[in-house]
């Protein structure tokens, strides 16, 4: 086994085990905190794929931004440290069957598809190319996303303002 393969399996194990905690933990705070190793494991996978820029953004936005937001919101809600939320209901068996079927289909698709290998090598410095593609061929998509974010921002402001007036 090469070092790269070992690194992949270690990172995948970290991501999956942390993800299991996120989904099954009865404590909201533990779920949110377990997101951190899960997201950092994915960062490691990006680094293995030589996508360093995406890895940096992943840590900055997801681990450093989104998780902080989630923790912040949980702290402002009711419920103490000892809070336990039920994670299963009577439909657990049905859900498990659906999940298993989906997993089987996904594995079958992934293993039967002949994955195409792109020609040439990766550029050593990707941020420039990513920027060019954002402001070149993908400009409408990029601007569309920023409009969506602006709408969300204005909407949030509107909702927050209403509460003050009452």
């Amino acid at each position: 086994m090469t070092g790269e393969a070992i690194a992949f399996y270690v990172l995948a194990a970290i991501t999956l085990s942390a993800g299991t905690v996120v989904a099954t933990s009865p404590n909201l705070m533990h779920s949110a905190v377990a997101l951190i190793p899960a997201l950092l494991g994915i960062t490691g996978l990006y680094v293995l794929l030589n996508a360093e820029f995406v890895a940096g953004i992943q840590v900055l936005i997801y681990a450093g931004g989104i998780t902080v937001l989630i923790l912040f919101v949980i702290m402002l809600t009711e419920g103490g440290t000892g809070l336990h939320i039920r994670q299963r209901n009577e439909q657990a068996a049905v859900a498990a069957a659906v999940a298993a079927a989906t997993a089987a289909v996904l594995v079958a698709v992934a293993s039967r598809t002949p994955w195409a290998h792109g020609a040439g090598t990766l550029p050593s410095y990707t941020p420039g190319a990513i920027g060019q593609s954002f402001l070149g061929p993908n400009l409408p998509l990029f601007e569309g996303t920023s409009v969506v974010l602006l709408v969300a921002l204005v909407g949030a402001l509107l909702i927050a303002r209403k509460e003050i007036r009452e």
Partner: peptide, 28 residues
């Protein structure tokens, strides 16, 4: 000498706040 050096610095230093939030919550 990472070619994303400055971005890397911003990313790692943004993780500190997570530790502070966890300490603040965990202490009860």
């Amino acid at each position: 000498d990472l070619n994303i050096g400055v971005l890397y610095f911003a990313a790692t230093s943004s993780l500190i706040v997570l530790g502070i939030l966890m300490a603040g919550w965990g202490s009860n």
